[in-house]
Design a protein around this nucleic acid. Structure first.
Length: 271
DNA sequence: CCCAAGACCTGGCGGC
DNA sequence: TGCCGCCAGGTCTTGG
């Protein structure tokens, strides 16, 4: 589920229910996530008040009195607010009990998500320190991509999915943005002009922003606890549409693996 | 430094 | 129906 737009949608959905509230208890049913949940986190979190809910890349940041909870949803994670009598399912490894009576429940069947506790300077945290710029922020541009591409022969699709280059671009939106920009996903990163990177940066921004905007409409359902977002599916031009006609030229969309990830593109429109 | 591949996990699907 | 292999929205680690 979670690419940047979904993480941002989640952030917006949960923030009003968390901000200003105290975590009164943490229930850990399975601590084996991407990294085991630390004893220190479990001991420390109860009693902390959440002052703000922010996002860096695909990490949600719950800023508390004495530190920050970093929450990553991995491949299959989602968060919901539930009442404290809602029975937990098989794949609900963690609940945070709040002083409002609600619980923030993490559901994560594949357990690639993570919960980390950071007490020092957030910017120095090993998971955050080397991340690239936010795609919707000022520091991200075609020039930035062009500079990052220098000397790199990987496929451009792999470049833009590299979190050290730019955060938040997952497999879905990498495919979409490259289609929008008319760039062949297999093209070597260092064989693309500055002008075309400008177009690509713009496409990345646009595609992510549009998805976030679409996500906004499901916020209420999400927080109510039953929402499985599927809202942006209809807007996808290439992802999940291998073999179907290209929206622009009508020729059949090509499916191919690039860097272990399934990729879809139009042979006629993307060069 | 760059890059490809393997690793972590579970569930759903299509094919036989 | 049952089993098997493959696929899945992420990213860290390892080894060349």
């Amino acid at each position: 589920m979670p690419e940047l737009p979904e993480v941002e949608t989640t952030r917006r959905g949960i923030a009003p229910h968390l901000t200003g509230h105290r975590i009164t208890a943490i229930t850990v049913r399975n601590r084996q996530l991407r990294w085991p949940i630390s004893d220190h986190l479990i001991a420390t979190l109860p009693g902390e008040v959440i002052h703000a809910v922010e996002r860096r890349g695909k990490y949600l940041l719950l800023r508390c009195d004495h530190g920050t909870l970093l929450l990553h949803l991995g491949m299959s994670g989602s968060l919901r607010l539930v009442s404290d009598t809602t029975p937990a399912g098989r794949h609900d490894p963690v609940d945070l009990q709040l002083d409002s009576g609600q619980r923030l429940r993490l559901t994560d069947p594949r357990r690639f998500g993570s919960l980390l506790w950071c007490e020092g300077d957030l910017a120095d945290h090993p998971r955050l320190a080397h991340l690239g710029p936010e795609p919707l922020g000022e520091a991200f541009s075609g020039d930035h991509l062009y500079q990052q591409a220098a000397g790199r022969r990987v496929a451009v699709k792999n470049l833009i999915m590299d979190g050290h280059v730019v955060v938040g671009v997952g497999n879905i939106y990498a495919n979409e943005a490259l289609f929008c920009a008319g760039i062949d996903p297999r093209r070597a990163a260092n064989r693309i002009s500055r002008a075309r990177y400008q177009r690509l940066a713009e496409a990345i921004r646009q595609v992510l922003q549009r998805a976030i905007d679409a996500g906004g409409t499901t916020l209420r359902d999400f927080v109510g606890g039953d929402g499985k977002p599927g809202y942006f599916r209809q807007q996808l031009q290439v992802y999940g549409r291998g073999g179907e006609p290209c929206e622009r030229c009508g020729s059949a969309l090509q499916v191919e693996r690039i860097g272990q990830r399934s990729s879809v593109y139009c042979r006629r429109c993307q060069h």
